[in-house]
Amino acid sequence: MSNLLLLPGICLTSDIDSMLTHMNNARFLRELDFAKIDFYERTGLYKCIKRHGGSLVLGASTIRYRRFIKLFNKYLITTKVTYWDEQSIYMEHRFLTPSDNFINAIVLCRTRLTNCNAEDVVNELLVDYTGDDVENHKKEKPELSLELAKWIESNEISSTALRSN
């Protein structure tokens, strides 16, 4: 499974906000859905989840907007897996300006797997099958970054509060 995939886009007249100058905030999330589907298919993640008898659902996402994507400007969406645990795969998506690689928006997502173990799924995809000794060719699980740990904690606090209502 590749660690980083790029998906190109362009801000069109159907993407702009009511001020008619830049990409609507909701359009970022719509484009992100297409990028995630592309990632699931091109990496084999979705097929692997199905092979394990599972399914997936978006559990949480947070987007931070940094700069407008103006009408007719091109952008790239990068997608990479940043961490995983038994239940979920965590991804980071970036909306980049191709000319200077400026990060216009950054998104953290938790994809929750149901009826299968996310660790098993990701480990199967990360194995380099070109070697004879599979265990020695396995790629390492990334460290949990402080930013992601705090985001997970924030979501857990929210879930606990919602369960008490």
Results as ranks from 00 to 15, higher is better:
residue 4 L to T: 10
residue 4 L to I: 13
residue 5 L to F: 10
residue 6 L to Y: 14
residue 6 L to Q: 06
residue 6 L to H: 10
residue 7 L to G: 00
residue 9 G to L: 08
residue 11 C to F: 05
residue 14 S to P: 00
residue 14 S to A: 10
residue 18 S to G: 08
residue 20 L to N: 12
residue 20 L to A: 08
residue 21 T to M: 05
residue 21 T to E: 09
residue 22 H to I: 02
residue 24 N to D: 10
residue 26 A to H: 11
residue 26 A to D: 15
residue 29 L to A: 09
residue 29 L to T: 06
residue 32 L to C: 13
residue 33 D to L: 11
residue 34 F to G: 10
residue 36 K to P: 00
residue 37 I to W: 14
residue 37 I to N: 14
residue 39 F to H: 14
residue 40 Y to G: 01
residue 40 Y to H: 09
residue 41 E to Q: 14
residue 42 R to A: 10
residue 43 T to Y: 08
residue 44 G to M: 07
residue 45 L to W: 05
residue 45 L to E: 04
residue 45 L to N: 03
residue 46 Y to G: 01
residue 47 K to A: 15
residue 47 K to W: 01
residue 48 C to Y: 02
residue 48 C to I: 03
residue 49 I to C: 04
residue 49 I to Y: 06
residue 49 I to P: 01
residue 49 I to M: 09
residue 50 K to F: 13
residue 56 L to R: 07
residue 56 L to D: 03
residue 57 V to I: 13
residue 58 L to T: 05
residue 59 G to C: 01
residue 63 I to S: 01
residue 64 R to A: 04
residue 65 Y to P: 10
residue 65 Y to K: 09
residue 67 R to K: 14
residue 69 I to S: 01
residue 69 I to R: 02
residue 71 L to M: 07
residue 72 F to W: 15
residue 72 F to H: 11
residue 75 Y to A: 02
residue 81 V to T: 13
residue 87 Q to S: 13
residue 87 Q to Y: 10
residue 93 H to P: 00
residue 94 R to L: 05
residue 94 R to V: 00
residue 98 P to Q: 08
residue 100 D to T: 12
residue 100 D to K: 08
residue 100 D to A: 07
residue 101 N to F: 09
residue 105 A to H: 06
residue 105 A to E: 06
residue 106 I to N: 04
residue 106 I to Q: 09
residue 112 R to I: 04
residue 113 L to K: 11
residue 114 T to I: 14
residue 114 T to P: 02
residue 115 N to F: 10
residue 116 C to D: 06
residue 117 N to I: 05
residue 119 E to M: 06
residue 119 E to G: 02
residue 120 D to V: 04
residue 120 D to S: 14
residue 123 N to H: 09
residue 123 N to L: 14
residue 124 E to V: 06
residue 125 L to W: 11
residue 128 D to Y: 05
residue 128 D to H: 11
residue 131 G to W: 02
residue 132 D to C: 02
residue 133 D to L: 07
residue 133 D to H: 07
residue 134 V to G: 00
residue 135 E to K: 11
residue 138 K to H: 09
residue 140 E to F: 02
residue 141 K to T: 04
residue 143 E to H: 08
residue 146 L to W: 02
residue 149 A to M: 06
residue 150 K to A: 13
residue 152 I to R: 09
residue 154 S to L: 11
residue 154 S to K: 12
residue 155 N to Q: 15
residue 156 E to I: 04
residue 156 E to R: 13
residue 157 I to F: 08
residue 159 S to Y: 10
residue 159 S to A: 15
residue 160 T to D: 05
residue 160 T to G: 01
residue 161 A to S: 06
residue 161 A to P: 00
residue 162 L to N: 11
residue 163 R to H: 10
residue 164 S to G: 05
residue 164 S to I: 09
residue 165 N to G: 06
